[in-house]
Write a protein that binds this DNA or RNA. Structure first.
Length: 707
RNA sequence: GGGCGGUUAGCUCAGUUGGUAGAGCAAUCGCUUUACACGCGAAAGGUCACAGGUUCGAGUCCUGUACCGCCCACCA
């Protein structure tokens, strides 16, 4: 780029060089951090607290553009409130992210030709910890690059000892209150990863599977899973089905593939008369619906598939076969014996899979695990939202919130993975001890770890040191929880439930839900699609301020935003515009002087004042996208294009008083514009502020917000 | 099957309590004008998905329809 022309009069030398965000940003961040004002303890005049707990990023990779969005939104709110004189705490953190990190690390092991199943538990844990801590450190640097003005002195990690202590205390209290129980219940079992998953960690995918119509004693029934027949403990029909009325309550005996079968026929509303033949085989151990039928009718559950997805010793000659292998074998044998009436090859149904890996089909399996009773907790969460103790932005997400609360099942918090917080439960001969290992021999600790959302669900009060911490008293309930709508159920809901349960207070007053960042064509960003936007790379090319503006403008809460490089570039141009406005103004004035203001200039100041009010109102109501756009247009279309242009004539005119008034006005508008823009574009505004000859505060970051 | 959202300029989206439609990018024309060519000026571009209704007035409120997207859900 060509060098700029020399500046006239006494404009600061920095303006001799073009605007260079990449070169100036690290130094500015350092200045902020060293000032100590990220820490609210150093905001001496501030009284009323304003708190945001940062959603702790998973420490298993580098930050993506979704992280950049949350950093931008939260930093915007924090900087705005800090300038307004609040005692602002933005508490950063990192999440060990149990299952997800373990998955990432297992993949890494796979590439190296290793497997966690061939490693000692401790060895695997140690390696994963090292991997996580390394990522965490890297991530902290990236958060700084994005301008996050969070209080690093209060940073928390989900595995910090004090966090674990709090998590344990909550578990104990839930147990004492009978809200957590040890249950033998169906869980979603991953044979690949050897752990159960909560209902939220599953998703359904459509699949075409053969539907076998098999003869079963006197009946014909339709099933996609003939291989589970060895675990059948009943046959069910609908109580209103006249076709089978005579059989209800009777036992049927017939020869099965591996010997005689004797099953009771039960009547249950669950059976749909119109599906298949209206007859269902009940396999309680391998189907959650069948399990419930079995509960209602007092039927036993017989496990026939083991944790590795192989048929067990109860399955005669099929023992040792994998599920699909066994299915084919059973179907073939049924056919040979004339027991297969027909096969519907067009049948499409939904199957449960691992939400992180669609190829990982989850097997329903009965296991002894810890479950949290959701109903009582959900009720309090509903009340809090209903009576406005928690506000949700956008409002329509409230409906989704309520709808979800209606069909809740108990929450399985046991994970059979190594990477996580061990569950503080000990067993001995059917006895259970919670909290600490009891004295005496033979107590065995539960080998499982907590679902990571159980601990992160306690994040707001755990990070603030509940119950005795000084910070808890000052900063709880927090002001706003800003996060993506995609984790409304996983996280926000759990924080509300556990926060209310444990502290008796809501964890936050407002919930601001942002959308997903998509590419220019509105397509979901993913590595496999090759449309990844690396936020750190963008900040290096266009500046963090440009990236932030691109993420803010046009981004309404709860809606996905599309982002593309040209948009970011557009705001780099805006940063440059601001830079040059400052250059012009500072070439022409070295600060405000006492002098009368002309009527024309007073109108300009009034106009600016109206903008201050509007922007402030927008900020208070989370209309940040409007605030950003208004400032953009004011600065570019009004200040630069009109006011500044018409000033050229005034400044070189012969009327000294008018010229002085205009100089003061230009300086005033620049000053205020920098303040209003600072939460949005902290770096360039601070850089210019540093060049102002007269200012109320050395750091723009803690200058007073207009209005 | 239930719920939620969307449909506005070529593309991506704003439009805060109803008052004659806006931005960015792209595309057109013209400009080295003493802050900025990372710039300036000018012009162009829309039956606001469709059909009804309320209103003096509807992109905005109500009813319905269509299409797109997302979430939830135990028909084997």
């Amino acid at each position: 780029m060509e060098p700029l022309k020399p500046v006239r009069s006494g404009a600061p030398e920095i303006f001799l060089t073009p605007y260079d965000p990449g070169g100036m940003e690290p130094g500015i961040y350092k200045k902020w951090e060293e000032s100590g004002y990220f820490n609210p303890d150093n905001l001496k005049d501030a009284k009323e607290p304003y708190t945001i707990i940062m959603p702790p990023p998973n420490a298993n990779g580098s930050l993506h553009v979704g992280h950049a969005l949350f950093v931008t939104l939260q930093d915007l709110l924090i900087r705005y409130k800090r300038m307004r004189g609040f005692k602002t705490l933005w508490l950063p953190g990192a999440d060990h992210a149990g299952f997800e990190t373990q998955l990432v690390y297992e993949k890494k092991l796979e590439k190296e030709g290793r497997s966690r199943f061939k490693m000692e538990r401790e060895e695997f844990y140690k390696e994963t910890l090292a991997f996580t801590l390394e990522n965490k450190k890297f991530m902290e640097g990236q958060l700084r690059q994005l301008g996050a003005s969070c209080d690093w002195s209060r940073e928390k990690f989900t595995l910090d000892p004090d966090i674990v202590t709090t998590v344990y205390a909550t578990f104990k209290k839930l147990y004492d209150d009978s809200l957590v129980y040890r249950g033998e219940r169906p869980v979603n079992w991953s044979t690949k990863y050897q752990t159960s998953l909560s209902d939220l960690e599953t998703k359904t995918v459509e699949r075409k599977d053969p539907l076998y119509y098999m003869k079963y004693g006197p009946f014909v029934l339709a099933t996609v899973r003939p291989e589970t027949k060895f675990g059948d403990t009943a046959i069910a029909v609908n109580p209103n089905d006249d076709r089978y009325k005579e059989w209800v309550g009777k036992e049927v005996e017939f020869d099965g593939l591996i010997g005689p079968v004797k099953l009771k026929v039960v009547a249950d509303e669950y059976v749909d008369m119109t599906f298949g033949t209206g007859v269902v085989k009940i396999t309680p151990a391998h189907d959650p619906n069948d399990f419930e039928v079995a509960q209602r009718h007092g039927l036993p559950a017989v496990e026939v598939i083991d944790r590795f997805g192989k048929l067990n010793e109860k399955c005669g000659k099929y023992a040792g076969m994998k599920i699909l292998e066994a299915r084919a074998a059973v179907a073939k044998d049924l056919e040979e014996k004339g027991l297969l009436e027909k096969v519907d090859e067009t049948y499409v149904h939904n199957i449960l899979v691992n939400y992180k890996n669609e190829n990982d089909i989850l097997e329903p399996r009965i296991m002894s695990q810890w479950f949290i009773k959701m109903a009582p907790l959900a009720e309090r969460a509903r009340e809090a939202v209903e009576n406005g103790k928690i506000r949700i932005f956008p409002e329509f997400q409230k409906k989704i919130f309520f709808h979800w609360l209606e069909n809740l099942r108990d929450w399985n918090i046991s994970r059979q993975i190594v990477w996580g917080i061990p569950i503080p439960a000990w067993f001995k001969d059917g006895e259970i001890a919670i909290g600490e290992k009891p004295s005496g021999e033979d107590w065995q600790q539960d080998p499982d770890t907590f679902d990571t959302w159980f601990s992160s669900g306690q994040w707001p009060y755990a990070t603030l040191g509940y119950p005795d911490g000084k910070d808890f008293k000052t900063y709880y309930p927090t002001s706003v929880m800003e996060t993506g709508y995609d984790i409304l159920f996983f996280w926000v809901m759990r924080m509300i439930m556990l926060g209310l349960y444990r502290t008796g207070e809501v964890p936050f007053r407002d919930v601001y839900l942002h959308g997903l960042v998509r590419d220019a064509q509105k397509i979901k960003i993913s590595k496999s699609k090759g449309n990844v936007i690396n936020p750190l790379e963008m900040t290096e090319i266009y500046g963090t301020d440009a990236l932030r503006m691109a993420l803010l403008v046009g981004n309404t809460p709860g809606m996905d935003i599309s982002l593309a490089e040209p948009k970011i570039k557009g705001y780099k141009l805006f940063s440059n515009k601001l830079w040059n406005i400052a250059r012009f103004v500072l070439e022409n004035t070295d600060g405000e002087q006492d002098a009368p203001v002309t009527e024309t200039d007073q109108k300009l100041l009034d106009e600016l004042h109206a903008l201050e009010k509007e922007v402030t109102a927008d900020m208070e109501n989370y209309r940040v996208y409007l605030a950003a756009e208004k400032l953009y247009h004011y600065v570019w279309d009004r200040f630069a294009a009109k006011i500044l242009e018409e000033s050229k004539d005034i400044l070189k005119g012969s009327d000294a008083a008018t010229a002085t008034s205009r100089r003061n006005t230009l300086y005033g508008i620049l000053n205020t514009s920098l303040k209003l823009l600072h939460p949005f574009m902290p770096f360039v505004t601070e850089a210019i502020w540093q060049q102002l000859p007269k200012k109320e505060n050395d750091l723009l970051m803690v200058a007073k917000w207009p209005v």
